[in-house]
């Protein structure tokens, strides 16, 4: 399918947003401006946006610990995401999720998960809702090569297959589960496992190519929406940064040649070149986009900076939809709940 000029520009904007947002987040972790750590999607932008751009409004997705790209790729505003990373009141999850648990339900992001593989059946359930309620929506589960060896993936693929659910299983194979090379712990080819469930399995060797990823995911989404059932898509890609920011391992499990080879096929650079060579874009137009996205990230940081930390009582909100449990708190807990002072910055 052919994307319009505006759509192609939006693709590049979202890939740049992920890159610049995560570059900034990485710096902020190192400077102590983001508590804890983050896992960046830098290097995997084509794989992420190739998938999210094939979805529509109302479609659902679930994700994993490498989590910022998914909501950004689906169009979530950056400010509340950044404020979540910094633990601020204006965070998309009120500062209660952080980087590992970003969720922006407004764009169909049902939540990222700190437990590898754990969010896959959440997307299966969203697909089940679509089916039972007769809605034309689909669900996509993002997971990595590490999660490809979790049993719950196969329970989910089996159920999605036998119930013919409108679902896409999208394996982001960045080739390393933390330090462990996927091929040393994975028997056979991940995409081939689909055959065991009687569903299509597709492997995208060049996951740095937006068009390759988008075409495959769009076909799977169209199939799902047409009632033709789930698809497993394995996208081979590469993360440039360490597993998490600030992590320093004594063993270099990835060699320099390999890194250089992947860096030479940068997804954003490739896409920019394709836009100029094949789609009538000018360098000036794309330079302006770069500057625009940098400004968006600055604004997101400013949004986060302007937000206060959440009030202490927020720690006692949202356990349940009602507050009956507050009645069951002990006197000490109750006092904390009713306290309205701010946590010192």
């Amino acid at each position: 399918m052919t994307l319009s000029h505006d759509e192609l520009l939006e693709v590049q904007r979202r890939m740049l947003r992920i890159r610049k947002f995560d570059e900034r987040a990485s710096k902020m972790v190192k400077r102590g401006h983001i508590p804890g750590t983050v896992h960046t999607s830098i290097g995997q932008e084509a794989q992420v946006v190739g998938a999210t751009f094939a979805l529509q409004d109302g479609d659902y997705m679930s994700g994993n610990h490498r989590s910022h790209g998914h909501p950004i790729g689906k169009g979530a505003p950056l400010g509340p995401l950044m404020a979540e990373l910094t633990g601020k009141a204006a965070g998309v999850c009120k500062g209660k999720g952080g980087s590992l648990h970003l969720a922006d339900f407004a764009v169909g992001s049902l939540g990222e998960s700190g437990i590898v593989g754990s969010s896959i059946p959440i997307a299966t359930g969203a697909a089940l809702s679509s089916k039972v309620l007769g809605r034309p929506t689909v669900a996509l589960a993002f997971f990595g090569d590490g999660a490809a060896n979790q049993g719950v993936l196969y329970e989910s693929m089996n159920m999605a297959g036998v119930w013919n659910l409108p679902m896409i299983f999208l394996c982001e194979n960045n080739q390393y589960a933390l330090s462990t090379p996927a091929h040393t712990v994975t028997s056979g080819v991940i995409a081939d496992r689909a055959a065991g469930f009687g569903i299509p399995g597709v492997r995208i060797e060049n996951g740095q190519d937006f068009f390759a990823v988008h075409d495959a995911v769009k076909s799977a989404v169209d199939r799902a929406r047409a009632g033709e059932g789930p698809t497993l898509i394995e996208v081979v890609t590469y993360r440039y940064n360490e597993h998490s920011e600030g992590l320093r391992l004594s063993v270099d499990y990835r060699n320099a040649e390999e890194k250089a080879e992947w860096l030479s096929r940068d997804p954003i650079v490739q896409f920019r070149e394709a836009l100029i060579a094949d789609h009538g874009f000018t360098a000036e137009e794309l330079d302006a986009l770069d500057a625009d996205v940098l400004r968006e990230v600055d604004e997101a940081v400013a949004f986060s900076d302007a937000s206060p930390f959440p009030e202490k009582s927020v720690a006692f909100d949202d356990l349940f939809t009602d507050t009956t449990y507050v009645e069951t708190l002990s006197r000490q807990e109750r006092a904390a709940f009713e306290q309205k002072e701010e946590v010192p910055a």
Binding site: L110, P121, S129, V132, V152, E155, S156
Partner: peptide, 14 residues
């Protein structure tokens, strides 16, 4: 898988 799918279904309207 059943419990996870039920959770996802509950989060999306069932």
């Amino acid at each position: 898988g059943i419990v996870g799918a039920a959770a996802g279904a509950a989060m999306t309207g069932l």
